[in-house]
Design a protein around this nucleic acid. Sequence first.
DNA 1: GATCTATGTAGAT
DNA 2: TCTACCTAGATCG
Length: 268
Amino acid sequence: MPEGHTLHRLALLHQRRYAGSAVSVSSPQGRFAGWSTVDGRTLESVEAVGKHLLHRYGPDATVHVHLGLYGAFTEFTLPAPVPTGQVRMRVIGSKTGTDLRGPTACELLTEDGVERLFARLGPDPLRDDAEPDRAWSRISRSRTPIAALLMDQSVLAGVGNVYRAEVLFRHGIDPMVAGRQLGAERWRVIWDDLVGLMRAGVRAGRIDTVAAEHDPVATGRAPRKDRHGGEVYVYRRAGQPCLVCSTPVASNQLAGRTLYWCPACQPE
DNA sequence: GATCTATGTAGAT
DNA sequence: TCTACCTAGATCG
């Protein structure tokens, strides 16, 4: 379930569980050749940037993981079970271990590679060192719809299809409005809201975006459990009534991804 | 059991 | 703009 909040949550977990002492690293499936370079070494620190996770072992060796659409870590307590399925990387600490399956990327980077990764990413709302003006300088000059810009990791790092749809809904913004037409004021509102929503996502381990006043349970409507695990206004709710105005939620393909919005609450 | 879909990205066209 | 990649849960029969 990987948008940026998932990776930052994993970074906190892995930092707590594995950083500061030697770990055993392996690749039961065999597709992560870099395991032998870090096996038995001390994991110095773990951090996330956008949807990327970095296990830092030293200047010569950082394990870079990108979960893609399907990748996932699972935890186990020692003694370690026999690996089942396609385990790309297994990390074992003093009390627990974790298996990585199905990632888009699991590779060893040197410091140069890490710098190149940071260089191609826009500001991450979940990082204290983020500079939202870097994103605004791109957005304010672009004819591309804001819905596409929010998903562009070189503009903004960590936002995915759920946060994109939800943040635009929460501020009544037409997804197709061009970046240059957005205005600095609305950009600031989007950024600040993403910071709050994504921090809450890190804490909760799921994406919740619905205000209490619109919550279908709290307002007496039938309980609902969204498929991604949290409560949302429009994501994956095409054809269902908008939680605010009851207009059917619309959907469309934009740059290969499904976009969701309420035509009444987010007018042109 | 088969099929569909997905919170993502890189690379080809 | 399209396809490939990779896994798992939901849905269909």
